[in-house]
Nucleic acid binder design. Structure first.
Lengths: 242, 242
DNA sequence: CGGTTCCTTGAAGGTTGTCAACAGGGGTGG
DNA sequence: CCACCCCTGTTGACAACCTTCAAGGAACCG
């Protein structure tokens, strides 16, 4: 290939990503709500990409305790971690009906082998995920109950909301929130009641509506600098209002 | 290049790793105890590898709270996460005098570009780290105080101990342990006292000596399946004794 | 309309944080 | 060598936080 000009890293990452998504485009699978997409222990052989619907990634402990690691939304990718031999410890479960595209690990390896951009994107993707997890870990270890809840809600809100500033309804039950944070359901309910009474959120059956993100930011301000995405801009945007 | 036989993934990863370590071999830097190796916010431009000594990786919150993310020992690598533009949020600080090798990000990118094995190793490395962090996060969210402490001690013990089964003295103060877990120092002291009274550990000034790993395993058994390294073998080794 | 899941709330008890004081190791300067 | 100071470890009392157990109301689904 002849390069007219040296591509920037950003361009290379974009290119690598599109090679991967193209490779996945041919292979679409559907999963019914509540069905298991990847079972813990089974050696997965594919990298997946969510097209529609929502899925939950959980980690189980021997004695039945379990942790909701993340909610997977359209565009999210999973199955990368076991690309090079890692033992899978996550169970991935469809919450709603879910459509996923996939590519075999061997195909991803082949692409990464001949296209450095693909490998670059995979490294970059893993780094970003790593960063997010460590931020969340820091909040879990050091945050108060309200900070943990507000942080989680803001994080999800950023991923759900569109360009407009319409209220967003997060499809998350308090039980799931509790599993994500490591609290019991009653305690989440009691803590979140403060946010409800302050008018920051509205609680529905199985979902949480974000009315005033500003109030959530205020509640999470102690750990705000750990938020990802456009939080930097958001904090600027809300500067003086917090 | 002519390949006589197709190399296995394991061989490719090993090859990629040695290319990287070779590239780092030429560049050695020394840091005095308590000096800062990477400061949060400064854009790092190198990937580092610890040769001797110990360093601490911390994450700071706005209001002064801080989290000890990990202890870096000889052989450990850091600075990979910012390879492709991630904003560094960690401060890395020499605990003892530390010698590190390093390579510029641009050089790592160049190597990964021409040698897929290098890129493969970086992906694999990031995946392993990701896995470890998520395991620790799960313990943090779901574990009891004793489980968290025992888990941390076993993890460090595995990295410190030699081939023999001699007692190991972990250079870790209770304050550092508290910062790692997100507890207060008094609470760590009280909780760890149970392990001390059981004869599992001996507490020194600024360090913790592991006398009976078996007892630690017993204390952490609820979260044991999340341990990395040779724990699988270890659990077999100690089978029936737990 | 019955069953299920979710949300809410109360009371009691265990866990953890806070504040405080003191003991002891280890280095440093006189 | 000793006196001194700093840091670490230890312990107590009390308050705040969180879990457990339990019960009941409300929304959804068949």
């Amino acid at each position: 290939m002849l390069a007219i000009s040296v591509p920037t890293i950003r361009e290379r990452l974009r290119s690598g990503e599109s090679v991967l998504t193209d490779a996945m485009a041919k292979n679409l699978r559907l999963f019914a709500a509540k069905s298991v997409i990847i079972e813990e222990g089974n050696q997965p052989t594919h990298v997946f990409r969510v097209i529609s619907g929502r899925a939950a990634r959980r980690r189980m402990l021997a004695d039945g305790r379990s942790q909701l690691m993340s909610i997977l939304l359209p565009g999210d990718i999973f199955g990368v971690r076991s690309l090079f031999g890692g033992v899978p410890t996550d169970t991935i479960e469809a919450i709603t009906d879910v459509a996923v595209q996939s590519t075999a690990h061997s195909e991803v390896q082949r692409l990464a082998n001949i296209e450095a951009n693909v490998a670059f994107w995979l490294i970059s993707y893993a780094s970003r995920e790593h960063q997010k997890i460590e931020n969340w870990l820091t909040v879990l270890a050091n945050g108060t109950a309200i900070e943990k809840i507000a942080f989680s809600l803001i994080d999800l809100w950023q991923r759900f909301r569109g360009a407009d500033n319409d209220p967003v309804r997060l499809p998350l039950s308090q039980r799931e929130l509790a599993e994500h944070i490591g609290f019991t359901l009653p305690h989440v309910c009691r803590t979140i009641a403060a946010l409800r009474d302050a008018g920051a959120i509205k609680i529905h059956y199985g979902s949480i509506e974000i009315l005033e993100p500003k109030l959530l930011l205020k509640s999470a301000k102690g750990v705000l600098d750990l938020l990802e995405g456009d939080t930097g801009n958001m904090t600027q945007y809300f500067a003086g209002q917090i």
